[in-house]
């Protein structure tokens, strides 16, 4: 799994890559909770290079989202590959997370 945080047009973006499963999600959890420790108003996650995510990875983002909601922060997903978007669609996770086609669309909302 790759996890990289960069600034994009003034917002914090997490660039994720690789497989997010029961082995890598504890690392994702540490990195994600560390990133939201200083309560960013908006955090965008780019899934462009993610090849797989299982329920333990999704639960990690649910935990991050619940943390951010306590201070009205927004967790946004973007650039989700089709295979993963299929999982998000049947799981109805679009009712849970804000999902956008690309970073600029996420930034504009």
């Amino acid at each position: 799994m790759e996890f990289d945080v960069q600034e994009y047009k003034g917002s914090r973006v997490i660039y994720l890559g690789g497989e997010i499963d029961m082995h890598s999600s504890p690392l994702l959890r540490d990195a994600l909770l560390d990133t939201i420790r200083d309560k960013p108003a908006k955090l965008i996650v780019s899934f462009r290079n993610v090849s797989y995510i299982d329920s333990s990875g999704i639960a990690t983002f649910v935990e991050g989202l619940k943390h951010m909601k306590t201070y009205s922060g927004r967790l946004q997903f973007s650039e989700i590959p089709k295979g993963i978007m299929d999982i998000f669609s049947f799981s109805k996770l679009d009712k849970v997370f804000e999902i956008f086609a690309d970073l600029d669309e996420a930034l504009s909302r």
Partner: peptide
């Protein structure tokens, strides 16, 4: 079958 559905249980009030 893809019936109309809600999100997973335990995340949001729905």
């Amino acid at each position: 079958m893809h019936p109309d559905a809600g999100p997973p249980i335990g995340i949001i009030d729905t």
